[in-house]
């Protein structure tokens, strides 16, 4: 838990261009603000988010990682999002062994028209990461 009230989490969001990214974009054009803590990286599919990408984000100081794709069963590339989810599942086990709280990664599946749902998910995740406090990984020289 963080006692640092001024802590502003750094969150990297890998968002699938077909859905969750479109939802975030919709927030933008509809002037529905979401926390500026979130930096978005657009990907073709959550199935293309590699272990290197996630671990590098942590190494460079991310406090949380949001992975947003299609809802299960709705992937443009058949099972890309489900393959990606299996990858995250296993990677979380490794993170746990390294002492990193796996809750620092959250997966969401939000359709392109669901701007409001993205806004809420972004707010909730930012609040949850704020409560977890800064990631201890980067100080780990």
């Amino acid at each position: 838990m963080s006692d640092n009230k001024s802590f502003e989490p750094k969150i990297i969001a890998f968002l699938c261009k077909w859905t969750t990214y479109a939802a975030a974009d919709l927030c933008g054009v509809s002037r529905m603000p979401y926390p500026s803590n979130i930096s978005i990286i657009k990907v073709n599919c959550t199935g293309e988010v590699t272990a290197d990408m996630i671990l590098t984000a942590f190494e460079k100081g991310a406090d949380g990682i949001l992975i947003g794709g299609c809802r299960p069963g709705h992937c443009r590339y058949e099972g890309g999002n489900l393959k990606g989810a299996n990858r995250i599942y296993l990677l979380k086990r490794a993170l746990n062994e390294f002492g990193v709280n796996p809750e620092r990664i959250r997966e969401v599946g939000i359709a392109g028209a669901q701007g409001l749902i993205f806004q809420r998910a972004a707010e909730k995740f930012t609040a949850d990461i704020r409560a977890l406090g800064p990631s201890p990984v980067m100080s780990n020289a």
């Binding site: 590699t50 290197d52 296993l90 490794a94």
Partner: peptide, 14 residues
């Protein structure tokens, strides 16, 4: 590849 362990875990999952 940067992280060898991450890479094999990702392959296994796939």
């Amino acid at each position: 590849v940067l992280d060898q362990g991450g890479a094999i875990l990702q392959s296994l999952a796939s």
